[in-house]
Amino acid sequence: MMTIEKLKAFGANTEEGLGRCMNNEAFYFRLIGMAAKDPNFEKLEIAVVMEELDDAFEAAHALKGVLGNLALTPLFTPANEMCELLRSRTETDYGPLMEQLMQAKAQLEALLAE
């Protein structure tokens, strides 16, 4: 079962995230569950591969907002970095950042599955 301690150990800023959820843990965990299934992860992955930077920016921007609000720092950090690069449509290798993001997502999913 998901706990605040586990999230904290994962690297989330639970104080902030939980605070935004009026300190309601169940509600916080429910939103985190929804975030893990956010279709923008897939949209971002495909767009990066296809080098469709406009779509990639949209997806990264959306993820940045959601992950930031939930204070899921390990996911937020790469998403934010990608978003800033994509904002100016920087042509660079997004692979490492994408990998970092997806690894963090996998860890979160594992936590959620426990």
Binding site: R20, C21, M22, L31, M34, A35, D38, V66, N69
Partner: peptide, 10 residues
């Protein structure tokens, strides 16, 4: 984003 909506709504 549904998560942002729900969070604000809450």
């Amino acid at each position: 984003e549904v998560i942002n909506r729900e969070m604000l709504g809450f």
